[in-house]
Amino acid sequence: MPPKTQLDRLAIGMMLLLCTLWGVQQAAIKIGSLGISPVWQSGLRSAGATVLVFGWACLRRVPLFERDGTLWPGLLAGCLFAAEFALIFLGLQFTTASRGVIFLYTAPFFVALGAKRLLPNERMRRAQWLGMALAFVGVLVLFGENLLRPAGQAWVGDLMLVGAAMLWAATTLTVKATALARTSAEKMLLYQLAVSALVLVVLSWLLGEPGVFAPVPMVWASLAFQIVLVASASYVAWFWLIRHYPATRLSSFSFLTPVLGVLAGGLLLGETLTPAVFAALGLVGAGIWIANR
């Protein structure tokens, strides 16, 4: 499949499905944290997904060990991926989840800025910047009131989440601008999963986390959902999309994830759904339409 300059119905449908899965993942992580330490949970997720994606690649006879110039970019992407999740979990110890979401979802802007230098064929027009800004306003409508509350030491966590957003963008740009763009989605993902599994497990040990402390069925079900559907299936699909479609246009869809995460929390965890949720959904949807019309 040759690279495309616009998103077609297949890409839009896949992104809607992926954002829904990533939104539900937020509720799954909360459930999993009731019995598994957060960084250890992330490490287990990467380790389990490494096994599944490797098995899937072997079943499909995807070449994984040929010399194709992806080793060093792949290791770089893996380190960026691991550092991103480490900053997310560490940053959330200092700031609230809702503040963290605001800063994490500045990532599409960093992708767009990096694309100006690294991806000359993906230059953003004024309408695309406007659409992304409108979508970000939707996220602010949903979570922005938390920025006005006394922060204390929250600025430390906020900076970590901004760093995580930059690393997320750097991972996307590394995949798009190097030899990784020419390899399979499975191999592209395995670099990141294998490296992050090792780094996150070691980090959890250094932090002194207890690991699995309440292994009830719901906790294991949550972890299984993250391993099978999120870290394996959805990430393979995401990196396949990055390989074939413009990264800047795909990134604009990521603003849907926090809104869908709040909706999932209301449906799965009984959390309150306010009018701001639906206003945010409308703004994000309008912004995505403007950015991709």
Rank of each mutant, 00 (worst) to 15 (best):
L203V: 09
V262G: 07
L18M: 13
L206M: 10
L190N: 07
L87C: 14
L44N: 08
L87V: 00
Q26I: 14
V236Y: 14
Q26G: 12
A247E: 02
V51D: 03
V202T: 13
L223K: 09
L180G: 01
F143S: 01
G114D: 12
A170H: 05
L104V: 02
L10F: 15
G74M: 04
A197R: 04
K30W: 13
R61F: 03
T248K: 06
P215G: 05
Y191R: 04
T274Q: 15
Q226G: 00
R9M: 12
C79G: 13
L16F: 09
A57H: 09
L59D: 05
A97H: 04
A28D: 01
K30G: 03
V259A: 12
Q26H: 13
A49S: 15
R117S: 14
Q25A: 09
L263D: 01
I12Q: 09
L59T: 11
F65M: 09
L113P: 00
T70Y: 09
G43S: 05
H244S: 15
P258Q: 14
L241Q: 13
V259H: 06
F81Y: 14
A279M: 14
I88R: 04
A86W: 14
I290T: 06
R126C: 02
W155E: 10
A169S: 15
I227R: 07
C19E: 15
S98V: 01
G138D: 12
E122K: 09
K4V: 11
I227Y: 11
G91S: 02
P63K: 13
V201S: 11
G91Q: 01
R249H: 10
G74V: 06
A280K: 13
V162W: 07
T50G: 05
L21C: 02
L180D: 00
P63L: 04
L167P: 03
P215A: 08
F89A: 04
S234C: 12
L283F: 12
F253H: 14
F225A: 05
G138A: 11
G157H: 09
P3Q: 10
L190C: 04
L161S: 02
A181F: 11
L71S: 08
W40V: 10
W220F: 15
L7E: 05
S222C: 13
S184T: 13
A151M: 14
V228R: 01
F136N: 00
S232K: 11
T274N: 08
K187W: 06
V101T: 14
L203F: 11
W289P: 03
L200A: 02
F110I: 02
L268P: 03
W168A: 07
G114Q: 02
